[in-house]
Design a protein around this nucleic acid. Structure first.
Length: 272
DNA sequence: GAAAGTGTTGAAAG
DNA sequence: TCTTTCAACACTTT
C-alpha cells in the first residue's frame, strides 16, 4: 500500500537510526529467501557486512540505503514495513528480513503478504532506468507532463500509475489528484485540456507534500516505523468515500473499476 | 465455510 | 503500444 508519501515517511523515520552506522549483517527470516531479489543472502553479506551507511533516501517508491560501493534498495509493495526492534504484539512469522547494525540496533522488514523485495545495485542506474520523473523535483515540469500526455493514446489513470512516467503515485493518490484536478479517471490522455493539465501539474506535488506532512496515509496497516500511523487518511477527499457526498458539489462519490483497480470519483466534478 | 476484496508490480497473452 | 489477466501472499469482509 505504501506510495510516495508513505515511503518518504519511512525514510524520515529511518535516517536518524541508521545513517553513519555500520552494517553487521543482512539476513532473510522465516526461510523466505525470495525477499532478496538480486542476490543470495550470502552474496548480499559479502557486499554489505562491515559497510557504513552513508545516506538513506527515496526514489519513487523505493527506499535507498547507500553504502560506499552500492545501494541497498527496498520496495515495500503492498504491506511492507520497516521497524527498529521487535513489536511485542507482532506475529513473528510475518518478518521476512533483518538488518543488524554493529551498534546492536536491529531493523526488521515486516511484510505479512510477502510481496516486498530487497535489491542490491552497484549502479543505481539500473533502478533509474525503470523509473520516470520524481513528482517533487524540479524535473517534473508542466512541459514534461503535457508532452507525456499528448503522446499517450490510453486513459489517464493507468498513465499516472505508470512508474516509468511519474515515479511514486499509487492508487490512493491518483484518485485524489484526479478529483482535485477535475479529471475523469477514464479520460483519454491526449484529450485533456491545457487548463486541466495545469491543475494536474499543480495538484500532484500539492497533495503529495501535504500527505508527507501528515506522515502518509494509514488505511489498514501502514506505519512509518514502530506504532505511529499516517494521519493523512483524515484528509482524503475521494478514496474510499464511495456513497458519501463530494466535498466540492454534494453529489455522491462513485466507485468503479479502471484497469482492475478500485477507482473513486465524483461523477459531477469529473466528467468524461 | 467459501469467495471476493486489498494500498504493488511484473510477466504473459490478446 | 496498449489493455487485460494472472500470480506472488495472508488476512478481512461478504
Amino acid at each position: 500500500m505504501p506510495e510516495l508519501p508513505e515511503v518518504q515517511s519511512v525514510v524520515n523515520y529511518l535516517r536518524p537510526i541508521i545513517i553513519n552506522q555500520t552494517i553487521a549483517s543482512v539476513i532473510h527470516l522465516n526461510d523466505y529467501t525470495k525477499v532478496f531479489e538480486t542476490h543470495s543472502t550470502e552474496q548480499l553479506n559479502k557486499q554489505l557486512a562491515g559497510q557504513k551507511i552513508t545516506n538513506v533516501w527515496r526514489r519513487g517508491k523505493y527506499i535507498i540505503i547507500d553504502v560506499a560501493y552500492g545501494h541497498l534498495c527496498i520496495h515495500l509493495r503492498m504491506t511492507g514495513q520497516l521497524q527498529e526492534g521487535l513489536g511485542k504484539e507482532d506475529n513473528p512469522k510475518h518478518y521476512t528480513a533483518l538488518m543488524g547494525l554493529v551498534n546492536g540496533c536491529e531493523v526488521y522488514f515486516k511484510d505479512y503478504r510477502k510481496f516486498g523485495r530487497i535489491y542490491f545495485f552497484e549502479d543505481i542506474k539500473i533502478l533509474e532506468n525503470k523509473l520516470g520523473c520524481e513528482p517533487l523535483s524540479l524535473s517534473f515540469t508542466y512541459q514534461y507532463l503535457k508532452e507525456g500526455l499528448q503522446i499517450s493514446t490510453g486513459i489517464i489513470k493507468p498513465k499516472l500509475l505508470d512508474q516509468k512516467f511519474i515515479a511514486g503515485l499509487g492508487n490512493i493518490y491518483v484518485d485524489e489528484v484526479l478529483w482535485k484536478s477535475r479529471i475523469h479517471p477514464k479520460k483519454k490522455c491526449n484529450q485533456i485540456s491545457a487548463i486541466k493539465t495545469k491543475r494536474l501539474h499543480r495538484s500532484i506535488p500539492e497533495i503529495l507534500e501535504k500527505s508527507i506532512k501528515y506522515n502518509g496515509t494509514t488505511i489498514i496497516n501502514f506505519s512509518p516505523g514502530n506504532k505511529t500511523k499516517g494521519r493523512f487518511s483524515k484528509h482524503l477527499k475521494v478514496f474510499g468515500k464511495q456513497g458519501s457526498s463530494c466535498y466540492q458539489c454534494e453529489s455522491t462519490i462513485k466507485k468503479i473499476f479502471v484497469s482492475q483497480r478500485g477507482t473513486h470519483y465524483c461523477p459531477k466534478c469529473q466528467k468524461l
